[in-house]
Amino acid sequence: MEGLSAFVLAIILVGLGLWTLIERRNVIWKLLGLNVASGGAILFLVAVAYRPQARPALLGLGPGPTADPLPQALVLTAIVIHFATLALALAYVIFLTEHRHTQDIHKLEREEE
């Protein structure tokens, strides 16, 4: 039950985030959408790792089904890298606002032509 609802949530979150990424014209809104979509992708991997009635993969918790530790280890670093790349993207948004005076992607693109 948990696994299924997490899969559904992950797919909807990715859809919501990518939708915002396409529809909004403000670059900060686009980055917010990307943030939500990346959360959905991470949730998908965590849901893949889950097993029914599983417990965390720790020694000393005794026998019983456990979650798969490999996808969890993969997304752990992904979260941190996501923060760093997001900070880089926002730094360039600030840079653009100072030099091009707009956050509207259409105006930025027209200026480049």
């Binding site: 993969a57 020694l59 530790p69 490999l70 280890a73 752990l76």
Partner: peptide, 10 residues
């Protein structure tokens, strides 16, 4: 040398 499987993998 770990008890947490995630730490052992990372």
């Amino acid at each position: 040398g770990a008890e947490n499987a995630v730490a052992a993998i990372v």
